[in-house]
């Protein structure tokens, strides 16, 4: 039985993506959304919510897979 995780990113991945993006913005990268905020972290969070951050995660496994389950007893 194969099941994909019900979320796109783990909380670690989410933190890492937003963090990296906020650093980029702080270092002068162009902002990809219209916003009034001046805080890079807020902008990065906003961008993440809207799904425009051009960063993904390289995973060793793409899906959470139950291959087989044998009950031994």
């Amino acid at each position: 039985m194969k099941k994909v995780f019900p979320f796109e990113y783990t909380r670690f991945e989410k933190a890492r993506i937003i963090g990296a993006r906020a650093l980029q913005i702080a270092m002068g990268a162009p902002v990809l959304i219209e916003t009034n905020s001046k805080n890079p972290l807020d902008i990065a969070k906003d961008e993440f919510e809207r799904g425009v951050i051009p960063i993904t995660v390289r995973r060793r496994r793409d899906a959470f897979v139950w291959l087989q389950r044998h009950d031994l007893f």
Binding site: L23, Q24, I25, M27, G28, A29, P30
Partner: peptide, 8 residues
Amino acid sequence: VPPDKLGE
């Protein structure tokens, strides 16, 4: 590539 050049 430094972040400030990302727009190009």
